[in-house]
Nucleic acid binder design. Structure first.
Lengths: 109, 109
DNA sequence: GAATCAAGTTTCCAATTGGGTACTACGTTA
DNA sequence: TAACGTAGTACCCAATTGGAAACTTGATTC
């Protein structure tokens, strides 16, 4: 607990997973790459996610400054989610993942 | 269930997560990038993982052909885990993750 | 005056994940 | 003959995750 090198020893892959790990975050961010989305639009495009999960994940992504949440004061409510500049730094990871997933699906069923 | 386009519609990021998602798999694979490792060696290098979890994750990675498990018939037992050629195709994703994690740690605490 | 809409929140319950501990195999070393 | 070491398994229990459904808000439409 007293060394200078604690941070140096942390695995960078673990660091990444601590921010965008879990079942949903990378998928949500990938949806936002193609542009700003509203809440229901996101939910419809991620078929298995519940409102609760989507809300939770969006809150955490916002807290970590990866996305920006914009509330329009109108009824019915309108809330938009946008990748932040910082969120966009995650683009290379998402592209690598998308590329691998695409090829993997070709290879396997 | 009868369309031609089911697979086309699957999100490639989701495909990737279905294979290497979860809390441990990417970390384990990243350890193997630097070379073949034995079971206990892996466990020691991933401080929070239990034997049970490590066993489970290694079995699944082996089932999906990302790693190769080699058992030496000797006592005490010796089992080695190695990235397969196919597992190595995941390298770009891991590198992108490691790079992002490294920069993210600089930026944040 | 009832229904509708978007974007949630709340509550409760089920399933999955994960941890602790003990146990195993068996040849070698003390 | 007792202990050691590696690579696990087996079993049980606790914690966390995740899902379903009902409820909320307030202006607008039927």
């Amino acid at each position: 607990m007293s060394g200078l090198d604690e941070n140096v020893l942390v695995c960078p892959v673990e660091t990444t997973l601590s921010v965008v790990g879990g079942k949903w975050k990378a998928i949500i961010l990938w949806r936002l790459v193609s542009g700003t989305k509203r809440f229901n639009e996101l939910q419809r495009s991620i078929s298995q996610i519940t409102r609760k999960m989507l809300t939770e994940q969006l809150r955490e992504l916002e807290r970590d400054n990866l996305i920006i949440r914009t509330v329009y004061q109108q009824v019915p409510p309108k809330v938009e989610y946008t990748l932040s500049d910082y969120g966009r730094t995650f683009l290379p990871v998402m592209q690598a993942m998308a590329q691998w997933g695409f090829v993997h699906r070709e290879r396997n069923g």
